[in-house]
Amino acid sequence: MSVIVPNSLSDALAALADNPDALVLAGGTDAMVEVNSGHRKPSHVIAINRVSELRSWTYDPVAATVHIGSGVTYAELMESPVADLLPALAEASRTVGSPQIRHAGTLGGNLGTCSPAGDGLPVVSALDGIVHLASVAGERSLSVHEFMVGVKRTARQPGELITGVTLPVLTGWQGYSKVGVRNAMVIALASTCLATDLEGRNVRLALGSVGPTILRCAEAEAFAATAVSFEARSVSAHDARRFGELAAAASRPINDHRATAEYRRHAIGVLASRLLRRAFPNE
């Protein structure tokens, strides 16, 4: 077994080139659970939490985008000013595990694990984020929708490192809601991110924990674009309900010990409808 702790991106990529299948350890909050339980026995570990290039975020006001390094923690994403630029991501971050987890866990780790219950992912999906990957061979960027392949499966190739994600700063309300049976420190049974884009005059809705990966709701989004008034920030009660129904219909949940598929689908409908109302508070 080996553990490498690179301090720079180039060192990290070189280490990864030597052991393309190494376990890349970011905050450790997913991977160490598996190591502790014996379910994962890594032979090579590359811990990237000291790679300074990955530990910061930058705002590009011209492009109206935020680039978030994969090593930025949830605790950092909850703080201004990034929290003001990406409020839904801040809300989602605040629901991740506990303060201890949020100090260690990173958005990059969330992407790397690619659990359908990952709290950051519905936000990245709703915002059509761009995921950046690098290896010694070069860099590439791809849409988060292409990046997320399935349950805990991504388009990351051996030898590649997730270096960050670029998210647009939208004008318009955005928020995140997540259902769990406890008032803190709970895994999402169902989650939703809704983002409105006043300039593009659209509403985006992404669903977590109700499919093999994060789902977008094309039908609900199309419906909302016509049903809401962006100027008056209004939507009728009937249409808000209809939006929830379309969201529920788009979900593809499973039954497990945490919840039934029926409950998850129901919850998605309620959350989507309530989020639309928060975005468009007037009737």
Binding site: V3, V5, L25, G27, G28, T29, M32, V33, V35, N36, V45, A47, N49, T73, A75, G97, S98, P99, Q100, I101, H103, A104, M185
Partner: peptide
């Protein structure tokens, strides 16, 4: 990481030491 009993500070951040690989 679900109970906090192992909390320590690493570089001034409160974390669960059970989720830190010691060698890292």
């Amino acid at each position: 990481g679900e109970c906090g009993s192992c909390s320590v500070l690493v570089d001034d951040e409160l974390v669960c030491s059970c989720l830190v690989l010691a060698a890292s």
